[in-house]
Design a protein around this nucleic acid. Structure first.
Ligand SMILES: [Mn+2]
Ligand SMILES: [Mn+2]
Ligand SMILES: [Mn+2]
Ligand SMILES: [Mn+2]
Lengths: 217, 217
DNA sequence: TTATTTTTTTAGATTTGTCTAAATATATAG
DNA sequence: CTATATATTTAGACAAATCTAAAAAAATAA
């Protein structure tokens, strides 16, 4: 069993290594953990002792199979709790992350399985992210960024790649929530911002925002 | 804000001081916390610094008003989560305590209020214990122990004063669950065990078990 | 009231996770 | 290839919560 801190490190290493088979760097972990590189080195050694990461000095870390399983299990819990908070307790999608950060550390396999069942085995969390099943399996559908769409293309909003409350609230205000259909009408040369139509309304979205909206064409 | 450990100390001091206005002794806390008296002294000093307990060397502790509020809030969360686990996730009443011990530390006032609402503002937890409202208020109805009933008296099972899984499973097996009506037929002089009738079945219950079954006549 | 037992506190160490400052290794640039 | 910049590690310290062993206070018994 891992401490909360160890679990947080594992999860962060996991997120930094998904879509990227390079070793995860000490500094990258330090930034996400909001701590110092020296602390990360200490923890990496501990995780390596426990065989949760492979580590060579100055070369960064890779999760081991065991470490990856542990990380995915935490991600599974995080996302299931987020679904619970939104679907059952009527929280908004921008309000659930911090609470799920705590709930993900609750330690009971039975609880997770029953929660999954209670929620009717959801496939995605409120932000469109896939929920691993009890064996850690999930299909990572590769979506297109709104910023990559071409003029005239139609798409369905499937997820976001930025989870800050500010960003999510902004999307909410614009009506750009999961499941909405949009059509890209114009790409502005000047700043890369895009004009789209959602539910018959014309909306302009900055390139920065468009980069974090995930689309299925 | 308190650490998990501080919260556990507060809760234990609360439970040791309810129905008892004497100061809570260091050793009593140590036993409940499964730790050593020396550690308790250390923590007591810390809680006293934070004005959560009143403490005089060698004289034990009392919760302050603030400390009591904090403790009651943890009890509230514990019991609400137990209701959730039983009512929504179909856990049995003997399976929920340990999970609730973890969930009670989740830190979000909004979460607790919404959970309370989701559960339709339950008044009691799965063991019959009262759930404090958001202001910390609850009515502590004083029940009678089954061991105090007289021959021929009828009663309704309202709660238990022992929460171990072994004890609760035992009651379950005997059909002695909350809400059941029973009639006491015989008190055995020899060992104080009692014969009762529940749902037309005759059952014999040892005095030790009868002491922990709470009855409303 | 004196002796003995029980309870509580202190002193000093340990573990976990963190930090700063300094040292070392790696990467990049000229 | 050498100098400089960046990234990482080490050394040493600290705060939180715990422990053991010893000292001190309070309670109980003789
Ligand atoms: Mn999240
Ligand atoms: Mn999410
Ligand atoms: Mn309980
Ligand atoms: Mn209970």
């Amino acid at each position: 069993m891992q401490s909360f801190t160890e679990e947080n490190y594992l999860k962060i290493i996991y997120h930094l290594s998904v879509n990227n088979d390079q070793a995860v760097q000490t500094n990258a972990i330090a930034e996400k953990m909001q701590t110092k590189a020296a602390s990360v080195t200490d923890m990496i050694k501990k995780l390596a002792d426990k065989q949760l990461v492979d580590y060579k000095k100055y070369q960064g870390v890779h999760l081991t199979q065991t470490g990856r399983q542990a990380a995915i299990n935490i991600v599974r819990k995080h996302r299931l709790w987020e679904v619970f908070l939104v679907e059952k307790l009527n929280f908004k999608w921008d309000e659930v992350h911090d609470i799920a950060e705590e709930l993900e550390h609750i330690n009971s396999a039975e609880l997770v399985e029953r929660l999954d069942e209670f929620l009717s085995f959801p496939k995605n969390d409120p932000h469109g992210d896939p929920i691993p099943d009890k064996h850690g399996k999930f299909d990572a559908v590769p979506f297109t960024k709104l910023s990559k769409l071409k003029t005239g293309e139609k798409g369905l909003i499937m997820g976001v790649s930025e989870h800050s409350s500010a960003f999510l609230k902004h999307l909410e205000k614009l009506g750009l929530t999961l499941g909405k259909t949009l059509t890209l009408t114009t790409i502005t040369d000047f700043d890369g911002s895009v004009e789209i139509i959602v539910e018959d309304k014309k909306i302009s979205v900055t390139r920065e925002v468009a980069k974090h909206i995930l689309i299925r064409i």
